[in-house]
Design a protein around this nucleic acid. Structure first.
Lengths: 200, 200
DNA sequence: TATTATCTAGACCGGTTGCTATAACCAGGA
DNA sequence: TCCTGGTTATAGCAACCGGTCTAGATAATA
C-alpha cells in the first residue's frame, strides 16, 4: 500500500465509521476493511490504539465539518440567511442516506464523555471551534460581541439537537423548524423583564 | 430471586446502563451483574434478546423522564419560569456525577437510528411525547396552539443539544445559557420581514 | 403424590473485540 | 551489494459478545 496514504486512509475510514456507527459500535477490524490497511499498520501509526485513532478521527472530522460550515456560511453575508444555508445542507444530507451523521460528533461525544477524558476534551474542543465559527459569522453581521458569542453557542446546541431529532424521526421537520425560527433565536436581546412576559 | 421484581430489575438496570453507556457500549452480562438477575431470566422475559430489552428500557426511561419533567413544569404556571425549573434540574443532574445522561435518550437514539428500526421508532415516539409535554405547558400558558407546538419542538431540540454540550464540556454553561435565552426562544412570532433584520 | 407452568441458573457456543508479537518485505542510501 | 529504517502482514491471545440449551427449582392445583 502507498505509504503516503495508509495513515490517512485509516483515519478517513475511522472518522466516517465513528461518526456513523459510534465509538463502541465500530470495531477496528471494520475500520481496517473499510480502509484496506493491514492491522500492523494501524498499531504502527497509532501505538495508543483505538483511543489514539479516535483522536485523529475527531480532528479530521472536525476540520471537514468546519470547512463545510464555513463554505455554507459564505453563501450569504447576512447571518440568518447564511445559517439557513448550513441547515439546508443538513437537510440535504439527511435525504442522502446516512450522511447527516457525518455532520455531527454528538454520538461520539456522548459515548466517551464519561469513559475517556482525552476524547471528551477533543470533542469539547471541536464543539467550541464550531460555535466560534457561528459566533464569528454573527459578529461579522453586526451583532455585538457578547450577543454573537451567546448566539453562536445557542446555535450550536440547537443545531445538534435538531440533527438528533431529524435522524431519530427520519424527518427533516426539526431542521426546517429551526430554519424558520432562526430570526427569533438570534434576535438581539431587547427586553427588560424576562420572567413574566409570556405571550404578547 | 423474587419473581415480581426480576423483569423490573433487568429493565431498570438496562435503562440506566443504556442511557449512560449507550447501546453498543453496554453488554448483557453487565446488565445482569447490575440487576442480579440470572441469564436464563433475561431470555425468558425478553425472548427477542437485546433489542427487545432495549424497547422496554426506552419505555421505562421515557416514563421516568416525562414524570420528572412534568413535576418540574408544575412548579410554576408561567412557561418560561416552569421550563427554567426543568433546566435547573438538569444543571443539578450534571453536578451529580453522571446523572445527566439519565435525562436523555439521545445517545441511544443516535446509535440505533440506522441499525434498528424498532428502536429508532421507540426513541422517536419518546421524543414526540416529550415535545408534547412542553407544547402542552406553552398552550396552558396562553400560547396559540401552532406557536405552542413549534415552541415545544424547538425546546426539545435545544434542550437535547444543550445536554450534549454540557456533558462534553463538563460545564453547566450551555444549560445556563439556554435558561437565560428562553424568553427569546419562546417569544411569539411578531416580525414581518425575517431575512434582513440583523441586529437593531 | 403427580402434574404443570413458571422461572432460575449456568454451562456452552461461535464469533468478535482490542491488542501483542514477530517476521518479512521494501525502498533508499552508502 | 549490503544495511537500515519504515512499513506490512498475520498468527495468536484473553476477554467479551449475544444467544442457545437444558436441567433444576418452585408453587399451585388436581
Amino acid at each position: 500500500m502507498d505509504q503516503v496514504d495508509t495513515r490517512g486512509k485509516i483515519v478517513a475510514a475511522a472518522s466516517y465509521l465513528f461518526q456513523t456507527k459510534g465509538y463502541a459500535g465500530t470495531g477496528l477490524n471494520e475500520i481496517l476493511r473499510e480502509s484496506g490497511a493491514p492491522k500492523g499498520s494501524l498499531y504502527y501509526y497509532f501505538p495508543g490504539g483505538k483511543e489514539a485513532l479516535a483522536l485523529a478521527a475527531i480532528e479530521q472530522a472536525s476540520h471537514t465539518m468546519q470547512a463545510k460550515v464555513r463554505q455554507n456560511l459564505a453563501l450569504a453575508a447576512e447571518p440568518v440567511a447564511a445559517i439557513r444555508q448550513v441547515l439546508a445542507d443538513m437537510i440535504q444530507a439527511l435525504q442522502n442516506d446516512g450522511q447527516l451523521l457525518t455532520l455531527s460528533l454528538s454520538m461520539l461525544a456522548l459515548e466517551t464523555c464519561h469513559s475517556s477524558e482525552p476524547l471528551r476534551q477533543a470533542c469539547a474542543r471541536s464543539f467550541r471551534e464550531m460555535a466560534a465559527i457561528y459566533t464569528a459569522k454573527l459578529a461579522a453581521g453586526g451583532y455585538p460581541p457578547a450577543r454573537a458569542a451567546e448566539g453562536g453557542q445557542l446555535l450550536q446546541a440547537t443545531i445538534e439537537g435538531a440533527i438528533i431529532l431529524s435522524l431519530t424521526q427520519k424527518d427533516t421537520a426539526p431542521l426546517q423548524l429551526l430554519q424558520s425560527q432562526l430570526p427569533d433565536l438570534l434576535k438581539p436581546r431587547n427586553w427588560q423583564a424576562d420572567s413574566a412576559s409570556g405571550p404578547d
